[in-house]
Amino acid sequence: MPQLSTIVIILLACATKLNANNSNDEGSLKSKIETNNEKIRLLEHQIAITDKEINITKSFEEMIAVIAALRPEMLKTYPTYCLPDGKSAGTHSIHLSDKTIEVICDADTARPGWIIIQRRINDDVNFDRSMDEYKDGFGNLENSFFIGLRNLYALLSIQQHELFIALESLSGETRYARYNNFQIANENARFKLLSLGEYEGTTSDGLRDSLGKNFIAYDSNKGTEEKTTSNGWWIDEGLNGIGSNLNAISSQWNTWPVGFKSVKMMIRPIMQTNRSCEAKEEPKKVQNIATKVCNWFGL
């Protein structure tokens, strides 16, 4: 493409010179020169954009090829990395010791490798569900859904995971909350929120009030007439933790914003970057590949 740019500019320059030699009208000559100069500037701009698009495409294709080559080995070490075969996002099967879970992968929100565990993008799916439904999961992976507490526990119990919460307001503003050690207890312990780790983000640390709380839904306290909450979340009987209830009739995250256009919760195993990204003893080519992979994953 740089060669093409040079050729185009030379040709236009020659055309300008010819026009100058064949014209006796000085005003017309200046006009033609200005017109050709403007064409040169436009072509340079278009060529630069094309070059950038080609480089982005090549970079993406190169990453897909690298991930495809490394995928089998990566999944041996990180079985819950969301890496669809030959794709960067879409449906994927996670093979656990006693079952296989179909999940949806996200590579656009916070780079590749994420499993979406909860998503609300419209009101087609009702989140006012029983505890049994929250245990098993509900909805459609391509639409709004909840992955299910049993599946979530099975995924998190394999190794350390981080949690990413993506929020979009009705006005289109996006913010996020990220926690580097997301853990919940098993079913016997009522899927208590055991750990969040450190917080990072552009919204508030809203989930912190739910730490140490059991996951409860409207029928968690069977035998009582009062509903503790209308939608399942990590909340106690005093409603502590309700401020971050993304499953509520209207999703909440403290006081921001008044309403949501979409919410999404995702998990990804923590990659041991000192082992996976630092190929100090390997050839330079291997080091470059390792660096590219880790940059692509945002590590």
Rank of each mutant, 00 (worst) to 15 (best):
T57S: 14
T57L: 13
T57M: 12
K58P: 08
K58M: 14
S59D: 12
S59N: 14
S59K: 11
F60V: 14
E61R: 14
E61K: 15
E62Y: 09
M63F: 13
M63C: 09
M63N: 13
I64C: 01
I64A: 06
I64H: 04
A65R: 11
A65N: 12
V66I: 15
V66Q: 10
I67L: 09
A68P: 00
A69F: 13
A69Y: 11
L70I: 08
L70Y: 00
R71S: 01
P72Q: 04
E73Y: 05
M74W: 10
L75H: 00
L75N: 05
L75M: 08
K76Q: 11
T77K: 11
Y78V: 01
P79T: 03
P79V: 06
P79K: 01
Y81A: 00
Y81H: 04
Y81N: 08
C82H: 07
C82S: 07
C82W: 05
C82V: 03
L83F: 03
D85Q: 12
G86E: 11
K87V: 04
K87A: 12
S88P: 06
S88N: 13
S88H: 09
A89I: 10
A89N: 13
A89C: 09
G90R: 08
G90D: 11
G90V: 07
G90N: 08
G90W: 11
T91W: 02
H92W: 09
H92G: 06
H92T: 11
H92L: 02
S93T: 12
I94F: 09
I94C: 03
H95D: 05
H95N: 10
H95V: 12
S97F: 10
S97Q: 14
S97D: 13
S97R: 13
S97K: 14
D98R: 06
D98K: 13
D98Q: 14
K99G: 09
K99F: 02
T100K: 13
T100H: 01
I101F: 02
I101C: 11
E102L: 13
E102R: 12
V103P: 02
I104Y: 10
I104E: 01
C105E: 08
D106S: 12
D106Q: 08
A107G: 07
A107M: 05
A107Q: 07
D108F: 10
D108N: 15
D108T: 15
D108Y: 10
T109Y: 04
A110M: 09
A110N: 15
A110D: 14
R111M: 05
P112E: 05
G113T: 05
W114T: 07
I115V: 15
I115N: 06
I116Q: 08
Q118N: 13
R119Q: 15
R120P: 03
R120N: 01
R120D: 06
I121V: 15
I121S: 11
I121H: 08
N122G: 10
N122T: 11
D123L: 02
D123I: 11
D123K: 12
D123M: 01
D124V: 08
V125S: 02
V125W: 06
V125F: 00
V125Y: 02
N126Q: 03
F127T: 02
D128V: 10
D128F: 04
D128C: 00
R129H: 06
S130P: 08
S130R: 07
S130M: 08
M131G: 01
M131C: 02
D132G: 12
D132W: 03
Y134E: 04
Y134I: 06
Y134M: 03
Y134P: 02
D136E: 14
D136R: 10
G137H: 05
G137Y: 06
